[in-house]
Amino acid sequence: MAKAAKKSGLISHGIAAQNKKGRFNYTIIDTIEAGIVLKGPEVKSLRFGRATITEAYAGERNGEIWLFNSYIPEYQGGVLSRFDSRAPRKLLLHAKQVDRLLGEVARDGISLVPLDIHFNARGLAKITLGIGQGRKKEDKRHAIAERDWQRDKARLMRNKGRDY
């Protein structure tokens, strides 16, 4: 069955959606893993890796943490249940974790940034939330320069070995 899943493009374990801009736009202070309340067709769509969380954010509603503006398209495999692809989705956390996160977010400049949606070893959908502080434009430029230098340094080291 594992071979059939790989051939069909299903993701049973691993990352279903990733927010690469999240680590660029925010300095991630800490991360936390939370469960997500999903419907059956949403899980199937996630297993095909069709979700997008680049514009998503997490926030508080009625004392609970919710994921807003995440995009999970309808599953096209013959299931007739309709759902809103951008509906808010409840995140499953312990009460102590919720209190801690709400305290962090209350501080100035701290945000909850969804970093990725993945399936754990048991096949359950989880989301990694980052507690992040927004970066300024200068910090982003510094990050780009550092990334370029690391790439150039690796290229120089690789080419130096070929000269001998």
Results as ranks from 00 to 15, higher is better:
L46E: 05
K136R: 11
K96G: 11
R82G: 14
I15V: 10
M1P: 13
L92R: 06
A5C: 08
R61Q: 05
V105W: 04
A51Q: 03
R147M: 14
V37G: 00
R89I: 05
K96I: 09
E138K: 10
A16I: 01
V79M: 14
R61T: 01
T27M: 08
I29W: 08
I53S: 01
K90W: 00
L129C: 11
T128I: 13
R158P: 07
P41V: 03
I11G: 05
L112M: 05
M1A: 13
G123E: 04
A95E: 14
V79D: 15
L101D: 00
Y26Q: 03
G59T: 03
G9D: 08
N69R: 08
R162Q: 13
S12K: 11
I11D: 02
P73R: 15
K160N: 14
I11N: 03
R135F: 04
G123V: 03
I36W: 06
F48K: 13
S81Y: 13
F68N: 02
K6T: 07
W149V: 13
F24S: 06
I28E: 06
G130Q: 06
S8R: 14
N62G: 03
P88M: 04
G35F: 02
E60H: 00
G14A: 07
G22Y: 02
R89T: 05
A34L: 06
I15M: 04
L91N: 05
I28K: 04
M1V: 11
R135Q: 06
G35P: 07
L92G: 02
E138L: 11
T54L: 07
R135C: 04
N19V: 00
P73G: 14
S8A: 14
H142Y: 10
A125Y: 06
R23G: 05
S81R: 13
I127P: 00
D139G: 09
K137T: 11
R23P: 04
I117T: 00
K7G: 09
S8C: 12
F83Y: 15
E60A: 02
I53R: 01
L129F: 13
R151T: 12
I11E: 03
T54E: 09
F24T: 06
R47Q: 09
D99N: 12
N62F: 03
L129A: 08
K140I: 07
L38G: 03
E60G: 00
S12Y: 11
K44C: 06
D108W: 08
I65K: 01
E33M: 11
E42V: 04
G35H: 03
G59W: 02
H142A: 13
R155I: 13
G77R: 10
A106R: 10
G22R: 01
T128L: 10
D148T: 12
D116Y: 02
G130E: 05
L115Y: 00
K44L: 08
K21A: 10
K96M: 11
L129D: 12
A16K: 01
L67N: 06
Q133R: 14
I28M: 07
R86S: 15
S85R: 15
I127E: 05
E74T: 15
I15L: 01
I131R: 07
D163S: 15
P88K: 00
M1F: 12
I36A: 06
V113N: 00
P73Y: 15
I65D: 01
S45F: 11
H13T: 08
A58G: 08
R135M: 05
T128K: 13
T31W: 09
D84M: 15
H118P: 01
